[in-house]
């Protein structure tokens, strides 16, 4: 149960006007370019599905999203409508312009085969994981292990507490909820639609997400 009162900001953009409309299956990924000024929406089709996402300056993949710089400069650990996602050089990459979920994590990172071993044991070493997807889809843009960094977990709920606690909680999302960003420069969006089966971040049942884009 949640008693949170979160700002919900719907988008005026119409699905019928979108120039990008794809479904990313559970455990699959996406790499795409959003031109400056374009809008990009991720729809949680079935609810409680973590969409692990990284943003890069399309002109330079070493100029990447920085979770710690973003939350420090906005003074809050959660991402929500109005959050501007910054690069490691404090340049705006995208701004969250619409959000019908309410808030999103950027401190939980992505699952990896290696971190699954730490968290759940060696029997999970060969389960599919987000880091695999990031590296597979990122390769086409020159994104390798060095270019990966703490990501955004859209639709994921990782509450932090004043005593310094952190946990993975049931999602705040629900079927059809979405988040939308506006590109502040030409950006690459790298997504892993999380295949994690060992915790509630995907409601124990990974499901597809839909991606929509609006630009000229």
């Amino acid at each position: 149960m949640t008693t949170l009162s979160l700002p919900l900001v719907p988008s005026p953009l119409l699905e019928s006007d979108a120039v990008l409309d794809v479904v990313v299956q559970a455990g699959d990924g996406f790499l795409g370019r959003v031109p400056a000024g374009g809008s990009f929406r991720i729809v949680d089709l079935h609810g409680n599905q973590a969409a692990d996402t990284l943003f890069y300056d399309a002109a330079d993949v070493t100029h990447r999203y920085s979770a710690v710089d973003t939350i420090r400069e906005q003074g809050s650990v959660y991402l929500t409508a109005g959050s501007t996602l910054l690069s490691q050089q404090l340049e705006p990459l995208v701004t969250v312009t619409a959000d019908t979920c309410g808030r999103h994590d950027t401190l939980g990172g992505a699952c990896a085969q290696e971190s699954n071993v730490v968290r759940y044991g060696m029997h999970t070493r060969h389960q599919h994981a987000c880091r695999e997807t990031f590296l597979r889809y990122g390769a086409a843009a020159g994104i390798g292990a060095r270019e990966l960094a703490p990501n955004v977990n859209f639709f994921m709920n990782v509450p932090l507490t004043p005593d310094g606690g952190l946990s993975f909680a049931d999602g705040l999302s629900a079927p059809g909820r979405y988040v939308e960003v506006r590109a502040e420069r030409d950006v690459l969006v790298l997504i892993s639609n999380c295949p994690q089966l060992n915790n509630p971040c995907n409601g124990w049942d990974p499901t597809p997400v839909r991606l929509l884009g609006w630009w000229a």
Partner: peptide, 20 residues
């Protein structure tokens, strides 16, 4: 050549938002 500190993995594995 590439392995380095991973803050999110450190935190979520140990259920902490600080280093102690």
């Amino acid at each position: 050549p590439v392995d380095r500190l991973n803050v999110p993995d450190t935190l979520k594995a140990q259920m902490s938002a600080r280093i102690t």
